[in-house]
């Protein structure tokens, strides 16, 4: 299975000729250039590429954090261009989770309250018990009442992952979630993501600069100068594995 398309299911993300150009001084930067892709429910897709290749911009386009200069972004079969701010916000609040390179926890809230924070913008508040469960899952059951300043960088990153999952999202967008962490923590985070994908069937789009991490996904895309291609090495490895 080279392209894990699930028959009969509509793609959860569909990009058609999507470009994001912006002006930097007098030069036009083509951060994302005519990208088309389809991602189906339950996929674990990794995107790698050099810094500045447009990975983060692509992820932001999918999450509706920025709008494309050309092309069509469909998420959950909604064309984002036709939605207003509150509709896109509601989509993010109810169905999409974000993890970023920086944890950016609110320093005056405990780990538990940081995890409950997304409930503020969703229909349903995040129950204390569920937030505690999530923290337990990321291995921080001892730290739920600690403030961010009392946590290590890796612990903060794990709190931010728990926070991203607080609203039980169907789609998790992760932008270098392990970028600042040591190797051990990096693998811990990755195994959590795999666990999530396998057991909760959460669709994951993972942006990373580390090609080693990419092999854990069921699809590996490479970004180069705003363009997106399937990874050649990854395809080869898959073919070899299939024998």
């Amino acid at each position: 299975m080279t392209a894990p398309e699930i028959q009969g299911k509509a793609p959860i993300i569909q990009l058609e000729g999507v470009s994001k150009h912006y002006l930097q001084g007098t030069q036009t930067v083509r951060a994302v250039d005519a990208v088309s892709m389809q991602i189906f429910p339950g996929n674990f897709v990794s995107i790698t590429g050099r810094s500045g290749s447009g990975k983060t911009t692509l992820l932001s386009l999918v999450g509706g954090l920025t709008s494309p200069t050309a092309g069509q972004v469909n998420v959950f079969e909604h064309p984002l261009q036709s939605l207003d701010d509150s509709a896109i916000s509601a989509l993010r609040a109810e169905r999409i989770g974000f993890v970023f390179q920086f944890a950016s926890l609110i320093p005056t809230l405990t780990a538990l309250d940081n995890v409950r924070l997304p409930g503020l913008f969703a229909e349903q508040p995040v129950e204390q018990s569920y937030a505690a469960e999530l923290l337990d899952w990321v291995g921080l059951s001892e730290k739920i009442n600690n403030y961010p300043a009392e946590l290590s960088g890796g612990q903060q990153a794990r709190v931010s992952l728990a926070r991203a999952l607080a609203n039980r999202p169907e789609l998790l967008l992760a932008d270098e979630p392990t970028g600042n962490l040591d190797v051990d923590t990096e693998w811990e985070m990755l195994s959590l993501l795999r666990d999530l994908n396998l057991n909760q069937n959460t669709t994951i789009l993972l942006v990373t600069h580390n090609p080693e991490l990419a092999q854990y996904g069921d699809r590996h895309l490479v970004m180069q100068s705003g363009g997106l291609t399937e990874s050649y090495q990854w395809l080869q490895a898959q073919v070899a594995a299939d024998g």
Binding site: L65, A90, R92, F98
Partner: peptide, 14 residues
Amino acid sequence: ELGLLRAMGAPRRA
């Protein structure tokens, strides 16, 4: 941080 709140689903008015 405020951008992150938006990513969590906070609308502009929030």
